[in-house]
């Protein structure tokens, strides 16, 4: 670090060189101990993983009756969580893509967080509708796969639309996140210490060399994806809203639900 005068850590400081920025981001992964704060935070959340695994395992082995839903309130904790996590993911997709489309260069510091959060939120959201089923092992019946009974899903059901909404959103988030990561993966490849690291990062970087042509294609692709993301966010959460609105139940059958869900997610 070259900074000699540091007025306060929140205010603007002297600009670091590119090499130093690279080192600040990449070294905790490749060259040095990530730091005590990181380890404490990691150990703090680590017990939540077995807790989640045990909770999901209990629901799968004992039955969905554990979740407290009943004949009148048929959807509870799981579906509320599903809507919540889709909302979280949507907000991050919007942050990332809107800022890209409006050419806000300061987005570079937060877009990776936002996109990773979207990806994980969408993955978590995808788990809940499966574990809320009475028979989760047959959840794949919602997919139109070829089978001997010639049975397809029932396309009038909002839950089938939902299946496609989650699937497309998950795939989109994965591609958006991964393609955005390419130049950084190439940096990691170049800085890797071990032969194995070079191989893995090299494979993931898909041959990125950072040429002008690469960057031009990259920019066009990112902007196209961002332009796709905005309507996708609206469609995904609208369909989540339709899970409720496309029913006959008082309090659910509300035409305001799809826009309400989309705005709520933001």
């Amino acid at each position: 670090m070259s900074g000699s005068a540091q007025p306060h850590r929140w205010t603007d400081r002297e600009r670091l060189g590119y090499g130093e920025i690279c080192a600040a981001v990449a070294d905790p992964i490749q060259r040095r101990w990530p730091g005590r704060a990181w380890v404490i935070a990691f150990l703090g959340v680590l017990p939540l993983v077995p807790a989640t695994v045990i909770a999901i395992g209990a629901v799968l082995t004992v039955g969905i009756g554990l979740s407290g839903v009943n004949t009148t309130v048929v959807w509870g904790f799981s579906i509320a969580n599903y809507v919540w996590w889709i909302g979280i993911g949507n907000a991050e997709t919007l942050i990332s893509s809107m800022l890209l489309l409006t050419r806000q260069h300061w987005r570079a510091s937060i877009n990776r967080f936002a996109e990773a959060m979207t990806l994980f939120a969408a993955a978590i959201a995808g788990i809940f509708p499966i574990i809320h089923l009475g028979r989760p092992l047959y959840s794949y019946w919602l997919a139109p796969y070829p089978n001997t009974m010639d049975l397809w899903p029932q396309w009038r059901s909002a839950l089938v639309w939902d299946f496609w909404a989650i699937l497309s959103y998950l795939l989109f988030s994965l591609i958006f996140w991964f393609t955005g990561l390419l130049p950084d993966l190439a940096t990691m490849r170049d800085r890797a210490q071990s032969r194995l690291g070079r191989k893995i990062y090299g494979a993931l970087a898909l041959g990125w060399r950072g040429s002008a042509r690469h960057w031009a294609v990259y920019e066009t692709f990112r902007k196209t994806m961002a332009a796709l993301a905005v309507p996708l966010v609206c469609s995904v959460h609208s369909i989540v809203g339709l899970d409720f609105a496309a029913s006959l139940i008082l309090g659910w059958q509300e035409s305001i639900f799809p826009p309400y869900f989309v705005v709520g997610a933001m």
Binding site: V74, R135, P136, Y138, S139, S157
Partner: peptide, 8 residues
């Protein structure tokens, strides 16, 4: 598969 949407 037990979505319970019919019940709702």
């Amino acid at each position: 598969v037990g979505t319970r949407f019919c019940e709702a």
